[in-house]
Computed example of a mutant assay.
Amino acid sequence: MPYKHNADRRHHIGKMKFRVTNWREYEAGLRQRGSLTLWVTPEALIGWRAPRRKTRGGQARYSDLAIETALTLGCVFGMRLRQTEGLLHSLLTLMGLKVPVPDHTTLSRRAQKWEPSARRNRPLPNGPLHVLVDSTGLKVYGAGQWLEEKHGVKSRRNWRKLHLAVDADSGEIIAHRLTDQNTDDPSQVAPLLDQVDGEIDQFTADGAYDGKPTYQAILQHSCTATIVIPPRVTAVACCDTGPPGQREKHIAAIASDGRLKWQAVTGYGKRALIETAIGRYKAQIGRRLRARSFAAQQTEAAIGCIALNRMLAGGRPESLRHQVRQA
C-alpha cells in the first residue's frame, strides 16, 4: 500500500480492536446457519411441479422453485449434484412428503436455464444507498492453473470474475455479475447499477474504477450521487471549461492535503466492508465454481449470493471500536 502513513514503521502501530455488542444474538445466528431444519409450505408443494405447457415440446416435470431448492442446498453444504439429490430425497422422505426429487442430470441441465422468479433479498431500506463495488476471482472447477504452472500444459479452464455491489449499511449483496477473467471492472458498473432500484447517495470503489465512463454510468443512474473513487497517481484534471467535476475535486484535494486526509474526509475507509463481503463469500460459499458451463456458473454464483444474504439476515455482528484509556 504505497499511500499508507508511516508505511516503513507500521509494524509498530497497534491494530484497532473492536468489541461485539450483540454477541448472544450473533452466536445464535451462527449456530442457525448449520441447522438442518427444513420446512415446506403448502404453496411450495403446489408449485413443486412445473405447470403444463400449452406449446409444442416436452413437458417439464419440475418447476424453477424445485430446481432452486436443490441447488441452494448443494451450494450451502458444498455438495455435488449427486450428493444434493441424495440429501433432498432423504429429507423429503423423513418428512413423509411424496414429491419427486430432481435427479442430478436434470439439475445440471436446468441450472443453465434457471432465472430468479422474484427478488430473493430483503427489501432495500428507504432512502438513498451507500453502494460499495468491487470484484474478485473465482477458480473454475478442474486442475487448470496447477497443470499450467507445474507441467506447462495450457488449460482451457481459467478464472471467472465475480462483480459485487454491497449496501454499506446492511452488508447485503444488492447486485452481482459473473464474467470471464478478461472483463474489466469499469464496464460492469452500469449492469450492476441496473439491478439497484433505489437512489444512490454515495458510490465507493477502488482506483481500478477510476475514469470518465464510471462517473457517467453512476450519474446516469443517480444524478446527485457522491462518487468516491481514488484517482490514479498519474491522473490530471480535465481541461474542459466550466465548473470542476467530482474527479477534478478529488485530484485537487489529494494534491493539496494528501491522500490520507482525502480518505478520512470522503469516508473512503468504508470500502473495507466490501472486502469483508468478498471474504465472507469465499469462506461460506467457496473459492471455486463447481459447474462446468458458463450459464450454470452464473446460476451458481447467483444462488450463492442469495444464500449468503439469508445467512447474514440470521445474525450479523454489531461492533464498536475499543477505546484505549489514557493514563
Rank of each mutant, 00 (worst) to 15 (best):
L71H: 00
A7I: 13
P102R: 06
E85D: 07
R287G: 15
E85M: 02
T84H: 08
G152I: 09
L30G: 08
G14I: 07
L308E: 15
D185Q: 02
G74W: 03
R33L: 14
Q202H: 13
D169H: 12
M1D: 11
V189S: 00
Y281W: 05
D194K: 05
A277L: 04
Q297A: 09
T214M: 01
T93M: 10
Q145C: 09
Y215T: 02
R33A: 15
R160C: 13
I306E: 13
K161S: 04
K154W: 07
I13W: 08
G34D: 15
L38E: 13
F294C: 07
S117E: 15
I303R: 04
A28S: 14
V265R: 09
R247M: 01
D134S: 06
L107H: 03
C75R: 13
R10G: 06
P317N: 11
I227P: 00
L124H: 04
K54Y: 10
Q83Y: 08
K139D: 12
Y62V: 01
L30H: 01
I251F: 04
A175T: 02
S222Y: 01
T204L: 06
C223V: 11
A235C: 10
P42Q: 11
Q323G: 08
A60S: 13
N158L: 10
R122K: 14
E85T: 08
L164M: 12
A277H: 03
